[in-house]
């Protein structure tokens, strides 16, 4: 499966990844609309939360709107989603995201946009066996 591997120890908290992500998918610079979240974890250290493509949400979705693509990435079909947020509740790492006023949840699809812009190499797209 393809996933975004995070190296929190390299993160400097610049939030570039959140800007890149929210601008790419929501056309705004808004951390709430980023599929990756950076948060403070102590003095000069940061935590990175992002989907690891574990697929718990796939089994939970009542309309089978969440599937795994050929690259092993978990994808949400917005037209099938009925906005119940069961996937948000089921996510074991709290990375199925929502934002105020939004109906369809969103998540990291391992697109590589943030990793390409990360100035410290804290993000990297990797592939591992299913």
């Amino acid at each position: 499966m393809k996933y975004l591997h995070t190296f929190a120890e390299k993160c400097n908290g610049c939030n570039t990844c959140m800007s890149v992500c929210s601008q790419l998918y929501f056309k705004v610079d808004d951390p709430e609309k980023s599929a990756i979240k950076v948060s403070a974890a102590g003095k000069n250290s940061f935590a990175l939360s992002v989907c690891n493509q574990c697929r718990v949400c796939v089994a939970e979705c009542p309309t089978a709107a969440i599937t795994v693509n050929k690259q092993g990435v978990v994808m949400i079909n917005k037209t099938l989603c009925i906005n119940c947020l069961a996937c948000v509740a089921a996510c074991p790492t709290d990375v199925m995201m929502t934002y105020r006023g939004g109906l369809v949840p969103f998540k990291c699809i391992a697109c590589d946009a943030c990793a390409k812009q990360c100035p410290t190499g804290a993000l990297k797209i990797e592939v591992k066996e299913d």
Binding site: C84, V88, A90, L103
Partner: peptide, 20 residues
């Protein structure tokens, strides 16, 4: 999720998510 046209979607979502 909005088919009922609720007046307060945020509370509906928040309360549902809590129970989920």
């Amino acid at each position: 999720g909005k088919s009922n046209n609720p007046v307060d979607m945020e509370t509906l979502q928040k309360t549902g998510l809590k129970l989920h």
